[in-house]
């Protein structure tokens, strides 16, 4: 039954990826086709030894860890709030998804406008009340990255909430009833019964969000362009710049493949960690 999916993905994803990965072994700038030649791993060593890329990697890791943690926490709170099955909660669940329907590049534009210290409905008053730096939350190297994290959480915490909610709603009733009979308090019930049983959903949120947050581009590109300075310069901005603006597709692909490896490692760590947790709870 898995065959159709595997065939489809092989044709329409694996094949282009392999071609793209092949580019990364070449010196290949689409603007200078006469200079194309095989260079082996040169693009990779160049990327790994570039201090700007290393800085972007650090920013990206920090951004990913913070966003995913906040989205998981907020998503869990929302899912628990919306757990009870009634009309109000169902409508609320749908309305909560509205941020996901907005194209990320427009999300970036919206928050740049709202947070602007001269014109922004939020930014003007924050700066007026000295709650934000004079150049605004996005114009200061100390606050821009945190602000972009908040924007990402705004758009994607609802996704985490929906996945966790679907997980909550498929928990078997008998174990919850048993807990109720045991007279376990709400906190104990959450920690000892619900969360362990929710591990698959939590895992799903973690893994999906890590793969996506690590590749964040649009919101940052539209809101700060990676600035101020290089404080919000995520790796994906470098990859797009090299690959799709300078058309150095060899170097751009190499950065992207390195990103994929990083994502795979992060996902692997999460899988191992949660497996360990799962085993501990299963033996209990």
């Amino acid at each position: 039954m898995a065959a159709p999916a595997i065939i489809h993905v092989t044709i329409f994803a694996v094949y282009p990826i392999l071609r793209g990965a092949g580019f990364s072994l070449f010196r290949m700038n689409l603007m200078q086709p006469w200079l194309h030649r095989f260079v082996g791993l040169r693009n990779y060593t160049d990327a790994l030894s570039d201090p700007a890329i290393r800085h972007s990697l650090a920013v990206t890791l920090m951004f990913t860890a913070s966003c995913v943690a906040m989205e998981l926490a907020l998503g869990l709170c929302l899912a628990l709030l919306l757990w009870t099955d009634n009309r109000f909660n169902r409508v609320a669940t749908i309305l909560m998804l509205v941020p996901i329907t907005v194209t990320p590049i427009v999300v970036g534009l919206i928050f740049r406008a709202l947070l602007d210290p001269s014109f922004g409905l939020i930014g003007y008053w924050l700066t007026w009340a000295h709650l934000a730096p004079p150049q605004g939350l996005l114009g200061d190297t100390h606050t821009a990255l945190m602000t972009m994290m908040a924007v990402d959480v705004w758009e994607w915490a609802p996704l985490a909430a929906l996945i966790l909610l679907a997980g909550l709603k498929s928990l078997p009733a008998d174990s919850l009833d048993a807990a109720a009979i045991d007279g376990a308090g709400p906190v104990a019930k959450l920690g000892r019964i619900i969360l362990p049983m929710m591990l698959p959903s939590i895992f799903l949120v973690l893994v999906l969000r890590v793969t996506d947050v690590f590749r964040t581009y649009d919101i940052v590109f539209a809101a700060t362009g990676g600035g101020p300075g290089d404080s919000t310069n995520l790796l994906m901005l470098d990859a797009v710049k090299q690959g799709l603006q300078f058309f150095d597709i060899g170097y751009g692909s190499a950065i992207s493949i390195l990103m994929t490896l990083a994502i795979a490692i992060l996902a692997g760590v999460i899988i191992l960690a949660l497996r360990g947790l799962d085993r501990r709870y299963n033996t209990l």
Binding site: P16, G252, T260
Partner: peptide
């Protein structure tokens, strides 16, 4: 392994695939 591979494919930045996919 298959599940993990599907995820890794999702994690490949568009920069790699966009141009080959376009030509395809």
């Amino acid at each position: 392994i298959i599940a993990y591979a599907l995820l890794a494919i999702r994690g490949v930045p568009t920069v790699v695939t966009l141009i080959p996919f376009y030509l395809f």
